[in-house]
Nucleic acid binder design. Structure first.
Lengths: 219, 219
DNA sequence: ACAAGTCTGTTGTTTTTACAACAAAAGGAG
DNA sequence: CTCCTTTTGTTGTAAAAACAACAGACTTGT
């Protein structure tokens, strides 16, 4: 656990909290470390969760398979990112998605109740963490709206352009790497993989962009 | 303003706060009342907002028109509901959507900075409001994921079924009224109106549901 | 009550997407 | 290195959605 203090220091949740304070908060929040093999479920849809998690190693996908077997990827959790913020609130209902390890992963679990119930004596920085959590949920909220914006586009091409240009903007660079395989990108944008692959190649042939695997260049 | 204390008492933000305390908080948060005619912009995409708002009268739509003129409705704000929570955080960037009065509307504006900076002396219930705000953002987050879930469905029919069955579940009743005209529902689900209208009628003919205007019955 | 405008359902046509199937390329395990 | 699996691009066909255009029902304002 101690080895992840450096990582935690750079996360949104512990932003501005010092090493020694993080160490004491790990106890206060009853932090636990769990590992998952590729393909393992971290959470299942329908579960009632009372844990906030930060990813220490690997990669997670927040996704959902519907009745017809179509998969929809809602979000990717990368190292240092969080999952479960939206379920910190009491009466937040059951989880709407599966969370699955896309690679062998290590996840830090925090006790939710310990976060909201400020322990004034032990952790002076508890309130700062609560505020960080607040801003984190706020930011995830805006990201979800952005995703809705991509998905709202009518054609596969428009969805791709919307997503890719946002990634370019986010990286401040027209060269960037996406965290998806083709199938995953299709599941993220909710379109058919082969149709999307086709569209990507057309766009490349038209000189709109270049790509190699999951490295893209917008032109 | 005083006439809306009863309304505010029943909102998520002021849940658990007494009348007299709400009255004093209205000053503390520099509450201001503004009215909008049908079609007026309450906020515009790209704006930097520093106000939290609660709708007192009318109806608002959170929407966005893309390059090709396709409109996407992200959310409806009904009386007592809130907009702007996700932009309370500093550095939350510019607004991603337009907010438009769908009917003549009255909106209460609160100063965001006053909400986050707890004034310990004046308002004992300030911290409760902050917590309420926290839970509200959290809930909106989950609602956005639900919307993504509807939109992720591949066919118009599946999108409709996903949306309508959630509404039925939310109302605890297979009879319910939706807050949309056909065009708006189409914009909300990001599909073509006529195709959707067609699909609705097919579903009715197959005995899956009944409808009259925006009243629906699932069978 | 009337006229103008909006909303809804309906139809036919065009375009796009989904689906299925396969081959080539890349990556991994033994 | 070789075999096996996964990923990606490609194609043809079937299905679905978008688009356009219009008529009737319903609203709204005068």
């Amino acid at each position: 656990m101690e080895k992840y203090v450096e990582l935690l220091k750079r996360t949104q949740l512990f932003s501005g909290v010092k090493d020694t304070e993080i160490t004491s908060m790990l106890h206060c929040l009853q932090a636990k470390l769990l590992t998952f093999k590729k393909g393992d479920y971290v959470f299942r849809e329908g579960e009632h969760i009372d844990k906030l998690t930060i990813l220490a190693e690997g990669k997670l996908l927040v996704q959902r398979d519907d009745f017809w077997g179509n998969r929809s990827i809602v979000n990717v959790i990368r190292i240092g990112e969080m999952f479960g913020e939206a379920y910190v609130a009491p009466e937040s209902g059951s989880l709407l998605n599966d969370v699955i390890a896309e690679e062998d992963s290590t996840v830090i679990f925090f006790d939710v109740r310990r976060i909201l119930t400020v322990c004034s004596t032990a952790c002076r920085f508890h309130s700062m963490v609560v505020q960080n959590l607040f801003f984190a949920i706020s930011e995830k909220n805006r990201k979800l709206v952005q995703k809705i914006d991509h998905m709202s586009k009518r054609s596969t091409r428009a969805k791709l352009l919307s997503y890719l240009s946002e990634e370019a903007k986010r990286h401040n660079n027209n060269r960037f790497t996406i965290p998806f395989t083709r199938q995953q990108l299709a599941d993220f944008l909710c379109v058919d993989r082969s149709a999307m692959s086709n569209e990507l190649c057309k766009m490349r042939d038209e000189g709109l962009l270049q790509f190699d695997k999951n490295k893209f260049i917008l032109l």
